[in-house]
Amino acid sequence: MRLGLLADIHGDGIGFQRALDWFASQATDHILCAGDVVDRGPDADAIVQELIKRAIPCIKGNHEFTLLREHSRWSQSSQRERLASRGRIVTQATLEYVAALPTSLRLQFDDQRLVLAHGAPWSDVVDMLPEARSSKWQRLLNEHPHDQIIVLGHTHRPMHVRCGHLRVLNPGSVYGVTIRDSHSCAIYDTISASLTLYDLKTQQTRLCPVVEAESRPRDHI
């Protein structure tokens, strides 16, 4: 099973289309999106229509919550044109789509149980990074005893962490404007347990190295 992974698109229609084209060329079986579809780039409406058309599972990220909270105020702003160019004013159809998104999803592909979330399964704003404190990784293990794969976004940083029985994956951000953004997507192969990253600017691929999580508190010296 080959899973195409997207996160943090942020209205970047060009990057999004490049990711879809790569997934098609690699014969991916499913595509998943770990949130932050909207805000920053101007193409959220077109991206949402494509997500709907392709029935791509997606969840809310923190920028979806921001859009829902602020859209009415932004729409009445004297800076409407500038805000629209930053993806902060969208159509009613996009608003309804975003409002209906879950905060996390549990999916199953063959014998693989997968959880799709944004920052962490318990919060859209938590940063899960390989160097995160051990209590975060232990919480993942404790709360997901029967899952095999966790797909996250939020950090804009690709990662492949092995944490006990879990593989915790982040494809990085489709959005690629600032130095923080990875401008990437990824394919996870469930047979080889490998995460292949695709650079949306250079169109080069590379394997994401596997990092072991520290899920137990270190002894104090």
Rank of each mutant, 00 (worst) to 15 (best):
L116Y: 05
R139K: 07
I179W: 00
F65V: 08
I221S: 02
L140V: 03
I150V: 15
R216D: 08
G15T: 08
I149M: 04
K136S: 09
R133E: 14
Y198V: 15
D219R: 12
Q49G: 04
L83C: 07
I179D: 12
R18P: 06
S77Q: 05
Q108C: 07
A46L: 11
P217V: 14
P57E: 13
Q112T: 14
H71A: 07
S75C: 10
P130K: 08
R40D: 03
I179M: 03
P121T: 14
L101W: 10
H165S: 08
R106Y: 01
S194F: 01
R139P: 01
D111S: 13
G87C: 11
L116W: 07
L140Q: 02
P158N: 14
D21H: 09
G61I: 07
I150K: 00
G119Y: 09
L105C: 08
F16I: 10
R106G: 10
Q76V: 01
H71R: 02
G35T: 08
E64T: 03
Y175G: 00
G61V: 04
K201C: 07
E143R: 05
L20S: 05
L20P: 00
Q26V: 07
T91R: 06
A19T: 06
G41A: 06
Q76K: 12
P158S: 15
L3R: 03
I179F: 00
A19C: 08
V161T: 07
R167M: 09
N142P: 00
G4T: 13
G164P: 02
L32N: 05
D12W: 01
Q138M: 11
G119D: 10
Y188S: 06
H144T: 12
A7L: 05
H146M: 04
P121K: 04
R73T: 12
L101S: 05
G172D: 05
E96V: 04
I59R: 01
Q92W: 01
R80K: 11
T178V: 09
T178W: 01
K136A: 13
Y97I: 06
G41I: 06
S78T: 11
S104E: 10
I9T: 10
R40V: 02
G35H: 04
M1T: 07
R54I: 12
G61D: 03
E50I: 12
D219G: 02
R133G: 15
L20K: 01
H154L: 09
R80D: 09
S215L: 03
E131P: 00
T28F: 00
I31C: 05
V210K: 12
L95P: 01
A193Y: 02
L140G: 04
D12C: 13
I149V: 15
L197T: 10
R88C: 14
D12F: 03
C163T: 14
R133A: 15
K201V: 09
H30C: 05
Q49C: 09
V48Y: 01
R206T: 11
V168M: 06
